[in-house]
Measured scan of single mutants.
Amino acid sequence: LIVDEAINEDNSVVSLSQPKMDELQLFRGDTVLLKGKKRREAVCIVLSDDTCSDEKIRMNRVVRNNLRVRLGDVISIQPCP
């Protein structure tokens, strides 16, 4: 998924579009594992966002710094076991 700027300022939340959440079989409030660069990982709570496009994930600056990614970078997402 492509990293995009978050609207809310919550450090533990990322936003996906509802069709993408359905495709990944995620529900609102699920915890997910995000994988960024240099084997960096972060655990976040996923919320749906109608304004977010299907191929993007919204996260704020703190999460991006933790993953060592910038806007427009590609990250992977998976549900936490």
Rank of each mutant, 00 (worst) to 15 (best):
L71N: 15
L34Y: 02
V63S: 05
S17H: 03
T51M: 06
D54C: 08
L33T: 10
I45Y: 10
M21C: 03
I45R: 14
I57W: 01
E41W: 03
N66H: 03
V13P: 03
E23P: 00
I7E: 15
G72A: 04
V14K: 01
I2W: 04
S53Y: 13
R39P: 08
C80H: 09
L24N: 02
S15L: 13
K56N: 15
N66M: 10
G29M: 08
E9R: 06
D30F: 02
S48R: 11
D54G: 08
N66K: 15
G29A: 05
I75S: 02
V46L: 05
V74C: 10
V62Y: 05
D54R: 05
S48T: 12
C52H: 03
D50P: 07
R70A: 14
R64T: 03
V63A: 14
A6S: 13
D50L: 06
C44E: 02
G72V: 00
R58A: 06
A6E: 07
R58M: 09
C52W: 02
R40A: 15
K37E: 10
V46C: 09
C52V: 09
T51A: 11
R64Q: 07
G36S: 11
V62F: 11
V62G: 13
G72H: 04
L33E: 05
I7P: 09
R64V: 03
C52E: 03
K20V: 12
V63D: 13
D10A: 09
P19Q: 15
F27E: 15
N8P: 08
L33H: 10
R39C: 14
R58H: 04
K20A: 12
I45C: 13
K20N: 08
G36A: 10
I57E: 01
Q25V: 05
C52M: 11
D30C: 14
Q78G: 09
F27D: 15
Q25P: 00
N60A: 12
R40Q: 10
L33Q: 07
R68C: 07
N66T: 13
L16V: 06
E41Q: 08
G36I: 02
L34S: 01
N66G: 11
N60D: 08
T51H: 02
D10P: 11
G29Y: 05
R64W: 02
R68A: 13
P79V: 12
R68N: 07
R58Q: 05
P79R: 07
D54N: 09
M21Q: 01
P19H: 12
I45T: 15
N11C: 08
I2T: 13
K38P: 13
D4P: 00
E5V: 09
S48E: 14
K56I: 13
P19T: 11
D10N: 04
D49Y: 01
S76P: 02
I2C: 06
R61I: 11
S53E: 12
Q25S: 13
V3F: 01
V46I: 05
E55S: 13
G72C: 03
R64I: 09
N65K: 10
K37D: 06
G36E: 05
L1F: 15
G29S: 07
G72L: 03
R40V: 13
T31A: 08
S53R: 10
D50Y: 04
N65D: 13
K38F: 08
C80E: 08
R58L: 10
R39L: 09
E23I: 06
D49A: 06
A6L: 15
P19W: 11
V3D: 02
R68Y: 15
Q25L: 06
I77C: 08
T31Y: 06
P79E: 08
L47R: 12
P81T: 11
M21Y: 02
V63K: 03
I45V: 13
V43F: 12
L16S: 02
L33G: 03
D10W: 05
L26C: 03
I75F: 01
V74S: 10
C44Q: 15
L26P: 01
K35P: 01
A6F: 15
K37M: 15
C44V: 11
A6T: 14
E5P: 06
R39I: 08
D22P: 01
C52S: 04
I57S: 01
V69C: 15
R58W: 02
K38Q: 09
P79I: 05
D49G: 05
I77T: 02
R28I: 09
L24G: 01
I2E: 06
I7A: 11
T51R: 08
F27R: 13
S15K: 14
Q78L: 12
L24D: 01
E55C: 12
K38W: 12
S48N: 14
M59C: 09
S17Y: 01
S53D: 13
V43S: 09
Q18V: 12
D54V: 11
R40H: 06
V69A: 10
V46K: 02
D73A: 13
E55V: 09
K35F: 04
V14Y: 01
T31Q: 15
K37A: 05
E23R: 08
K56Q: 15
